[in-house]
Design a binder for these strands. Structure first.
Lengths: 152, 152
DNA sequence: GGTCGACCTTACTACCGTGGGAAGGTCAAG
DNA sequence: CTTGACCTTCCCACGGTAGTAAGGTCGACC
C-alpha cells in the first residue's frame, strides 16, 4: 500500500478537483466542505504533497447530495442517515421514506407553529392604528397577555 | 443614597420576589431570567445580603412581556426595541406596528420556504413505493437534482 | 445546635449550521 | 522575485436554550 502523493497540477489533470472547484461544482462553501469532512460525511479526502484537499467526482456528488438535502430542510443527522442509505445497495425504500415522512411531520408542525404566530400578529396589526399616537394594541397584548390556564 | 440590603424574608414580605417565584409568575426559566438580565433587558436587579436576586412586580411584568413576545416569534433584538417603546410614553403606535409588520413579513417568508420544502417532499414521498426494494425516487432526487441555472 | 432538601450563586459546555477572520503556506502567472 | 489568488489550521461569533459542576444559603424540623 504505497501512499501516492499527487502534485496539484497532476491531480487536476486526473479528474480530481481542489476545494475551490468542489465548491463551484457543488454550491457548498469551502468552509462547509471542510466542516462536512470533519464530521465524517465525506470519508477519506486525499491531499496533495502541499496538504491541499483533493476531491474525487464521488466526493462532489456527495456534496451535491448534502446541498440538496439541506435545501429540503433535512438536519445533518438525517442527512447522515440518508447518505448511508444511498450508499447501501441493500437498503429498502421504506427506510428512506420513513425519514422523509418524519421530516414532513416536522415541517408541518413548524409551519403550523409559525402560522399561529402569524395569525395572532396579523390580528394585532390590524387593530393597531399605526399613527403618531402612543396607544397600541400590540404592546397591550405583549404587556397584558394571560396564558390560558388549562393546567390544574 | 444608602444602599439598603434586604434580607431574604424581609424582601419577600415587601412584594418583591426571588428568582424562583419570578420564574413561576412569568413562565421564564431561572436560567433565562439571568440571561435576560445579563443582556440588559431587565435593568437593575436588586440583591439580598446573600447575593440572591430580588425582583419587583415591574421586573416580573417585563419577563411576561418577553415571554409573550418570544411566543410570537420576535427575536431578542426586536424584543429589546419593543421593550424600549413600551417604556416610552411618547412612542408612536406606528413604530410598534412597523416592527410587527416586519416580523410578519419574516414569518410569511419562512412559512413559504417551509411550504416549498414540504411540497417537494410530499411529491417525492408520494412517488416512493416505501417497500423492501431499494429503488427510491427520494434518494434519486437528492443524488441527481440539478439546480435551475437562471444565472448566467 | 446540626442536618436536610430545596433553592440560590457563578462559570463553563453544548446544541445546530454558518460565517468571519487571523496568520501562514502554496500555486501559477507576470 | 513578486503578486494575488488560493489553500491551510485555529479560534470566535451568532441565537436561544439547556445541562452540569462546585459551592453558598434558606427555612424547617429534630
Amino acid at each position: 500500500m504505497k501512499k501516492v502523493q499527487l502534485e496539484h497540477a497532476e491531480a487536476l489533470e486526473s479528474g480530481l478537483v481542489d476545494i475551490g472547484r468542489a465548491m463551484q461544482a457543488s454550491g457548498v462553501s469551502a468552509k462547509m466542505i471542510r466542516h462536512y469532512e470533519e464530521i465524517g460525511l465525506l470519508g477519506n479526502v486525499a491531499r496533495t504533497a502541499a496538504n491541499y484537499r483533493i476531491y474525487s467526482a464521488q466526493h462532489v456528488h456527495v456534496l451535491r447530495f448534502i446541498k440538496r438535502a439541506r435545501t429540503l430542510g433535512f438536519s445533518m443527522e438525517e442527512i447522515r442517515e440518508l447518505l448511508g442509505l444511498w450508499q447501501d445497495r441493500r437498503r429498502s425504500s421504506a427506510s428512506v421514506r420513513k425519514i422523509a415522512t418524519h421530516h414532513i411531520d416536522e415541517l408541518q408542525a413548524k409551519i403550523a407553529e409559525l402560522q399561529g404566530m402569524l395569525g395572532t400578529l396579523q390580528q394585532l396589526v390590524h387593530c393597531c392604528a399605526g399613527d403618531h399616537r402612543p396607544d397600541c394594541p400590540i404592546l397591550d397584548d405583549l404587556a397584558e397577555y394571560e396564558p390560558a390556564h388549562d393546567a390544574i
